[in-house]
Nucleic acid binder design. Sequence first.
DNA 1: CCATTTCTGACACACGGTGCCATAACCTGA
DNA 2: TCAGGTTATGGCACCGTGTGTCAGAAATGG
Lengths: 200, 200
Amino acid sequence: MEQGRVATGDRGGRPAITSAHELAAVAQRLFVAHGFDETSVEDIATAAGISRRTFFRYFSVKADVCFADSPTELVRLQQALSAADPHESYRLVIVRAVVAALRFPPGEREWAWQRAQLVLEVPVLQAHATRIYAQWRKAAAEFARGRRPDDDVFPVVVGHAVLAGTLAAHEYWITHPASGLDDALVRMLDLLLPPEPPAP
Amino acid sequence: MEQGRVATGDRGGRPAITSAHELAAVAQRLFVAHGFDETSVEDIATAAGISRRTFFRYFSVKADVCFADSPTELVRLQQALSAADPHESYRLVIVRAVVAALRFPPGEREWAWQRAQLVLEVPVLQAHATRIYAQWRKAAAEFARGRRPDDDVFPVVVGHAVLAGTLAAHEYWITHPASGLDDALVRMLDLLLPPEPPAP
DNA sequence: CCATTTCTGACACACGGTGCCATAACCTGA
DNA sequence: TCAGGTTATGGCACCGTGTGTCAGAAATGG
C-alpha cells in the first residue's frame, strides 16, 4: 500500500509538480475518450507530465483515480449522521445525510455524471468501488446500532439498505440523465429503508 | 477473456487431467490456510498437478475459482423466478427463489460457510463478486419488470433489494455461524423488499 | 495407421503494483 | 553563499496476473 503522502504538509521540501485533483481530471478525460482498460497508467502519467512511479504516489491503485472525492463524501455522511437529532425518524436522518454527502456544485454536474457512468459500467471500477461501499455500509450500520443497540439485525439491514438505495439512485440517474440525483436518492431510500423498529 | 472450454464436450480429444470442481477444492484449502493474496496461481497449479497456463483455462481469473458454483446458482434463481405463478405475491416468489437458488447439500455446509467468509472478507474477492451480483440484480430486475412493465423504478429497486438482502443474510450468517442461512435470507429480504406496488 | 479433436505445457509479453535509491527542488540557519 | 534537512520525483529491478501463440500429448473413429 505504501501510499506516499504527496502535498500533505506544505512546509519545506520540493513542491509537488501536480495534484491528485489534477491527475483525476486528466485521467477521467482519457477514460471517457478511450476507455478505462485501454488507458494505461503510463498514458495518464505521460499526459500529466509525470512518471508512472509518481502516479502511484498519488493513487496507490489505478482505479483510485476515479474515487478522489470519496473520502470527503464519506466524512460528510458520517458527520451528518452523528450530528442528527436522536429523536428524529432514523429514515429522515439517513435520507438527508446521504443527499448531503453526495451533493456537488452545479458546475460539476456533467463531471459527476460522467464519473458515475464510469463507476457503474466499467467492471474494474465497479469492483473497486466495493471498498468505498464497505465504508458507507459501516457508517450506516454504526448509526443504526446507536439507535437500537440490542438489535443485531437492524444495523446490517440498514447498512445494506443505504448502499442499495444509493446505488439504485445512481443507476436511475445514469439511465435518466435529465432527472436529479437528489430526487432519485429520496425515492429509492424511501422504498428500501425498513420501517423504524419498535422502540427498545 | 478467452476462457478455453475445458470438459464441456466429452466426445473425442485428450481427456482433461483435472476438473474445475477439483481445482476449486484445492484452491479453497490453500486460501483458507495461507490467505488469498498469499497464494499465487502458481501455488494452486502446483498443488493440483497442472501448469499455471492450464489453470487459466479452467478459470480466466484467479478469483473465479471461488465462484465455481455461481453459474448454477444463477440458473436456479432465474428458473425459480420465471416458473412462478404470476398471481402470487412478488415478494413471496423472490424469497422462495433466492432460498432455492442458494440451497446446498447438508454435507457442504462447512464448505459453503468458508467460501462465504472468504468472499465477504477478502477485498479482492469482495470486489470480484460484483460480477455475480450484477447478474443477480439483472435477473431480479427483469422479473420485476415482467410484473410492472410500465414502472421504471420498480425493477431497479427490486434488483438492488434482492442483492442487499442476500448480502445482508450472508453477513449475518458469517457472524452467527450457528444460525441458518435460509432463515436469515427470509428475514432480510422481508425487511428490504419494497411492498407490492399498486396493480397496473 | 492416420486424421481429427481436445487438452496441455512452455514461452514471450503487456500491465499493474512495489521496494529501493539517487537526485532535484524547496526552505532554514550559519 | 553555503551546508544540511526535507519532500517530491524518476529510474530501475522485480513479482504476480492475465493473454496470445504454438508445438506436442492423448484420446477417438475410420
